[in-house]
Amino acid sequence: MRRELLSRIAETLYWIGRYVERADDIARLLDVSVHRTIGGEEDWRSILAILGHEQMAPTTDSLLRRLAFDAGDPSSIAGCVRAARENARGVREIISTEMWECLNVTWNQLPQQRAGAGRLGPHGYLRYVSERASLFFGLADATMSRDDGWRFIVLGRCLERVDMTARLLAVHRESDWRLLLQACGADESFTRTHKGDSSRVLEFLLLDRLFPRSITYALETAEECLADLTPDQRRAGISDPARASIGRVRMGLEYTDLAELRGQLPLLLIALQEACVAASEAITDRFFQTAAPAGWVRGGQSWVGV
């Protein structure tokens, strides 16, 4: 039943998952922010901080160019789409044709979408990227066998989602909760669940067990993937360091007193970020080992001319 995967391919699939999710997350984030600038309430500095760029006070145009359109910048939406597509090109025999065509067409269409954004505003472009990301994961869901290849894509997506959501939470302000929910696609689900009680936003995004973009949900899915990738044969403990660090942080999160969530938040987020980094490193060590490039030294003259 089990079919092994080349390490190089496992790594590529993992990154495809991350890049597509990242493109989606940035697009959502920008979309709600752009919407808010219309009301004059958006300060772009927080967006830049989320994505790790701490610089000048930008204009809407330069910011969009930088975060959405510039394919040369690997942290922009176009850069992520490009990276995902390039990676997919290297594993075309593993992913389904539908998935490849989805990414290829997305990348080919970006210039047109951008031209449209010039006329009609960026919403169309951002929405397009989000929809294509959903299409991609939907196609993956519908056309891939649930083997290790699939697990690496999901693993990449989950870790990226945890990372991006944690960043979002780290810079949000009290008054921002609706932006926060919208950027996570959680607005309507939250309203239905908690009737718009803003004191429960954090709880929903961090701990909700049913909402697929909550941090707990993403951590749990990542843990399941890792457990399936290396079924643990031991009677006690967890031998996989990636799974251990994710599991620990999830447990810490789940057992936090809901009343203290707000106060604990900075510490929780630091722990989350550290766990993501540790898990990512452990996954790389465990699965993505490629052969050291062989250097051949021919000893002595006798080899020459053979």
């Binding site: 092994e4 995967l5 080349l6 390490s7 190089r8 496992a10 075309r92 025999e93 593993i94 290790d148 990738l229 699965f287 080992q289 490629t290 052969a291 490039p293």
Partner: peptide
């Protein structure tokens, strides 16, 4: 499988591919 040279390794005159 589609492999590149760096996915392969030879030992004892046998060829292997490096998997997860």
């Amino acid at each position: 499988g589609l492999v590149e040279g760096r996915d392969l390794v030879c030992e004892n005159n046998r060829v292997y591919m490096i998997t997860t």
